[in-house]
Design a protein around this nucleic acid. Structure first.
Lengths: 285, 285
DNA sequence: CGATTTGTTGTAATTTAATTACAAGACAAC
DNA sequence: GTTGTCTTGTAATTAAATTACAACAAATCG
């Protein structure tokens, strides 16, 4: 937990004067790290020892040490301590908050992801006879995106966002086929059924879903992404971005496993687009 | 440029003693930020003023200020200096690199994005009679995702990834309709045509695309996202994530503009899923 | 309701750390 | 070999942070 978050969470245990200090610091974190203890005390209208005591309460060695911790918190980019969008946020505020919360979500995803599982998933995918991506709702667009990546690898790839098609496809699957089921919650009944059906037909089922969810239990192999979702907006946001990055990782693992010669193939796919595009005038991206 | 990088890059301009200081700091950055100037001087076997001069040479106000900058550099965590995936990277390396490069891309996107344009786009979207999202290839899944968000707002939303449908839809558009064209490069001919057609028919065309691209020139309003794309893999990766976050921002702006009562509506949409899902056993997400 | 204790806050003294001024030494150029 | 410049360290100074202690406020208990 970074210092800024710590200040917020231990707010209740502060005394009156300490709260004044906390308020000033939260309001001007950037100014704080460039201020002396005297300047900060003056801003908060308290004495210098009070500031010092405040720092100690936050498990730092003293004011200079506290500034160090604060600087690190800020570097991790938390201009908005509360990253949740609020009713009266202006465009500047909500734009920054959404970028920040998405980045924070990716960071926790990175820390929690199981490299071993990724490696096994890449193994399975590179050996697949056929790969199917299934998702519903918001996860359907992730499935489409996955198809857009994996079709380049010259492997049969399908993608369905229709439960009937998914079901038929699952029933027709067999040994060597890989089915990737994508669901943030992992509690969508239809998708669980499909995972079960695919498994009964000897397909390998990879789940990109929440750890220990009903869907996860139906899968051969689970890539869990426990990302804190901002539920205020009632829309999947960060979770879906993390899923996409995971798809990128699997696709990258796939290409690396296949070696450099294979990469030439990808270049061809990309070059094939040239005719449909306006030429670049210069080398800027 | 962060301080650590600065130390490396200005290595040539250091004197003999300053180099000693630089070496010690680069070797033990974590220890440095918790040391006094005296301790560091002793470690580097130089005098205290030498350390101070070293700090000044790096455009910091003095030793404490230098430590602050150093702390921030360390917090920003660049475990992989080179974030590009390489031939012989193992799963651990490429996973970390892809997460990191995606986060870095989002960070530059955040810095470069034009808040003013976002605000105008939200304006236009909230007043739209009908909203259409068009994308091709990788951008098609972004368009689908946008549809998945915006349909919740009780506004007529369509999404096409088929140029014939897009064309027909564009021709049928009229004043008050908003067409959102999504393309990373902004050089896909078909999509440019469609933007032009939509504009001829009095629709407002919002482009989520590269600044000053052919597509951008056809749009009423451009949300440019100049994200450094990792082209090694010949696949769109970071750009597409940035586009999704932009969609999230527009959707959020939309809901905020509509006020709190409208948010109840979104909750209803979300609650409607309950029947199709397994119940949560606890409150973990 | 008053006395006592506990906790909070500020003043002043002290200690510690960082910076400056200056002088000695090293090195290069003439 | 001498002069000038650049580098480095010593000692003095200044600035900053911390500690010790006293005054005050609030809460607890008789």
């Amino acid at each position: 937990m970074n210092v800024l978050e710590k200040i917020v969470s231990s707010a209740t245990s502060f005394s009156k004067s300490e709260r004044k200090v906390a308020d000033i610091i939260l309001a001007n974190p950037q100014i704080t790290i460039h201020s002396s203890i005297a300047a900060l005390a003056k801003m908060a209208d308290v004495s210098e020892p009070t500031v010092n005591r405040f720092c100690r309460r936050l498990d730092t060695k003293g004011f200079p040490d506290f500034k160090l911790h604060l600087a690190q918190s800020l570097a991790n980019g938390t201009p908005y301590v509360n990253r949740h969008v609020e009713e009266d946020d202006g465009p500047e505020a909500y734009t920054a908050k959404i970028f920040e919360s998405t980045m924070a979500a990716l960071d926790t995803a990175r820390q929690r992801v199981d490299i071993n599982m990724i490696n096994r998933a890449v193994d399975v995918l590179t050996q697949a006879k056929k790969i199917s991506f299934f998702g519903l709702g918001a996860s359907a667009s992730v499935a489409h995106d996955a198809q857009n990546k994996f079709f380049r690898f010259n492997v049969p790839v399908v993608c369905f966002d229709d439960i009937v098609m998914q079901r038929m496809s699952a029933i027709n699957s067999s040994d060597g086929d890989v089915v990737v089921c994508i669901s943030h919650t992992g509690r969508t009944k239809n998708l669980c059924d499909i995972a079960a059906i695919a498994r009964e037909n000897d397909a390998t089922v990879i789940g990109i879903t929440a750890y220990d969810s009903p869907l996860a239990r139906e899968c051969t192999l689970v890539l869990s992404l426990d990302v804190p979702e901002d539920t205020d907006m009632y829309m999947p946001m960060a979770s879906r971005v993390a899923q996409l990055v995971l798809i990128d990782i699997l696709a990258t693992g796939f290409t690396l496993r296949r070696g450099s010669k294979f990469r030439e193939n990808l270049k061809k796919v990309k070059d094939s687009l040239r005719g449909s595009r306006f030429e670049k005038k210069d080398f800027t991206n």
